[in-house]
């Protein structure tokens, strides 16, 4: 079936079977492999994307459910110059990245959180990441990076 959606600001129409997930659509049909599969049952958040302003696990969204929606993936998170944005920069600066497989999902969760709560406490940041598993970092430097980004955005 034809699925029409906006991905990272670009309108696309994809001919795809109805029983695949949004994750499959992004990775296999649109070649946006920055979104990862970690568990495929909504437990790890490696596949998290922002759909119409809300964080979702793309493995738990049926591709046709995204028809008519605006999706932002990690490939769509960029500074105006096309380089990494402030959150991505802070992930690097604060040592929040190790193996990196969870990081796209973590950044999407961070962006989704900051959209709704521009100046979260560390505890609120942890709540915002509660659906994103990381096995390397112990989360602390990820929380540091999001906290620093929130403060930076406040200053403008």
């Amino acid at each position: 079936m034809l699925i029409e959606l906006t991905v990272n600001g670009r309108d696309v129409a994809v001919d795809a079977p109805p029983d695949i997930t949004l994750l499959d659509l992004l990775r296999d049909y649109l070649n946006l492999t920055g979104t990862k599969e970690g568990c495929a049952v909504g437990e790890c958040g490696a596949c998290a994307v922002i759909m119409d302003g809300r964080l979702v696990n793309s493995c738990m969204v049926l591709a046709p459910q995204a028809d008519g929606c605006a999706i932002t993936t990690i490939e769509g998170v960029r500074a105006p110059d096309g380089g990494p944005n402030d959150l991505q920069q802070n992930f690097i600066e604060y040592g929040a990245v190790q193996c990196g497989i969870c990081i796209p999902g973590m950044i999407m969760a961070g962006e989704a959180l900051l959209m709704r709560n521009p100046l979260p406490t560390r505890e609120e940041i942890r709540m915002g990441l509660a659906g994103n598993l990381c096995r390397c970092t112990g989360y602390q430097q990820i929380v540091d990076a999001i906290e620093a980004t929130a403060k930076g955005r406040q200053k403008g």
Binding site: N57, M60, V61, A112, L113, G128, A130, G131
Partner: peptide, 9 residues
């Protein structure tokens, strides 16, 4: 019930 993504869906 779960993390934000589960709560959103």
């Amino acid at each position: 019930v779960g993390g934000p993504a589960i709560a959103n869906a």
